[in-house]
Structures are given as C-alpha cells and as structure tokens.
Amino acid sequence: MIHPKTNQTDDHQESLIQVDRLSKRFDEIIALDEISFSVNRGDIFGFLGPNGSGKTTTINILTGLSRPDSGTIRVAGLDCTKNPKAAQHLIGIVPDESNLYPELSGFDNLCFCASLYGMRKNERKERAKELLDLFGLHEAADRKFAGYSRGMKRKLTLAAGMIHRPQILFLDEPTTGIDVAGARQIRQLTADLNANGTTVFLTTHYIEEAERLCNRIAFIVKGRINRMDTPENLMRQTQGQHIVQFAFQATTEKACRPIMAEFPDCRCKTVSEGIRVESPQPIRVGPLVRLLEDNGMEVSEAKKILPTLEDVFVKMTGIEAKLMKQEKEKKMGGPA
C-alpha cells in the first residue's frame, strides 16, 4: 500500500522550501558545499546519503538549529536565512534520535509539545489523544517515556513532530534502529500524512524506503548534491543494464575471476548472496553457469535481477548502499 506517489514534479507547483547555494563549514570540514534545491508543496522529498554527507546539517539549518555560512533559505515564502524563527510555526521536526522528556508520560509529552506551539489546553488534550490512537499508543499514554520501547519512542517522537499540524514535516532517519513492523507502520503513517497534504522532507540511508515513499530524491555526498530527480527519472540511469545473480553451494571468493577473463564486457562483484554479473548486453545464463561449474563452483541458483534505485545510487555516488546501511545501524544499535 504505502504511497500513491501522485505528486509528480510540476513546474507550476508551489515551491515550499527553496534553498540556494547553501554552504556550511565546521572548522576545516566542508559540511555543505553550495547546495541548491527546492521542495514543492505536497512532495515527499528524499535526501539520501551516507553518514556525514550533510543530511542532518541541512535539516538543522532549515529548521533553525544551525546557521549557514552563506546561501539563502526561503520556507513558505518567508526568508529564513537571517531569521530562522520566521517559519518555525509551519514546520514539524522528527530528529534522528527520540528526544522527548523521559520523566513525562506519553500523553504529557504530547501536550507539552503542543503548548510550545501555543495550542490551548482542550485542543492540546484532544490532539494528543487523537495521535496516541493513530499511533496505537493509547494504552501506554500514562506510562513514562523512559519506559517505552525503541519503536514506541520513535512513534511518539513522530507524533510530537506533527502535534501542531505542520505544513512541512522534517523526518531525519525516521525508521533507523527499529523493528521491521514498526518501520513499516512509520512508512505508512508518513505516506498517509502526505496524502492529507503535509509536505515531507525525509532523510534516510534506506534507499528502498526512499524509493517507496518519495516522489523526488536527491543524492548528497560529501556536502554536495550529486543528483536530484524523480525516482522514475533516476531509474532511467539503469535502463539497458542487465544483472544476473548467482548463488553457490559453498562459499567462494574467486567466482568472478573466470567470468571477467572470459566475458570482458561484464562487470562482476561479490555480494553477500554470491556474485553479481552486470552487462549492457542481455546475459545468457547457461554459458556462465557452465563456466563457473567447469571452474569447480557448484551453482545453486541463478536469477535475473531488476535494477533498483540502490544500483542507481551506487552508480552515481560510488558508495555501497549496504555498507552505508550497516554503518548507520551499528551506530543506532539495531536494524530496521
């Protein structure tokens, strides 16, 4: 189900976030190097990149937690470059770590966050109850946040970010470190929110998550936007590319050697499942299997793979997406 992806890029759409030549440096490190992009109303805009690529720095600057060295930012037509507070009433933020108050209950946390946006008491309570129901947390409403599981914390943090019905929601790695079911639920909620009119700015290192949710994606590497387009247009990069994956009865590290020697047009690399052969020409599986078996490798499976956005990402950035994912999960302490 997830997302209908109806908000295709259109030149006539209203630009809600406009960033022009934004730069930021931390001592000798260039965190952002003159990046420019715009997010249209109704977009789910995905910002993809490895750790330290500048994703969180961008969010921090856009939300007013950090200042740019140069460049301009406009949010909903308001100039936020010099006055980052100008648009804070329009935006909601879900940071990469759950940062609610451990000593408060789930319900009190939401009511408190609502009060920060000037919501009155009755409105706060109603909205908090509504969100606790929506996220399936109503039974834990009176429990202290400190006692919540990681997934529950993530959901409540997401609820807190949307408590004041923001026009734009910034989601910084929303599904990192939580279980599969929880991640799936958060993705569905994000899609539903967007379907109800909220513009979403999503940073993630889960490429499949961005592929499923976003209608526009930017790849950011070392503070620079490497490529930005719709997933469909990005996928065109892999048109004409043919991939076959081979699995073996026993682990083998030398499987690529005979293929590379015999079929110089093919690219071959070792993956966790076995090897992956890529070619601009259609690949005939039979000769490859025979070659591998002649070289003493027992092929247990050979399957054609359709190119994914991950392949585009790897092609464009030279960064292995799986490595990026593992790195982040290690940091956060668990898989999504």
Binding site: T63, G64, L65, Q88, H89, P95, N99, C113, L116, G118
Partner: peptide, 14 residues
C-alpha cells in the same frame, strides 16, 4: 545533552 532542549529551540518563540 539529551537533546530535549532542541525542542524548545525549535519552538516558535523568541
């Protein structure tokens, strides 16, 4: 340190 102060800094008040 727990980053909950960020919530306050992000609130639309001076």
């Amino acid at each position: 340190k727990g980053r909950s102060f960020e919530r306050l800094l992000l609130a639309p008040i001076s």
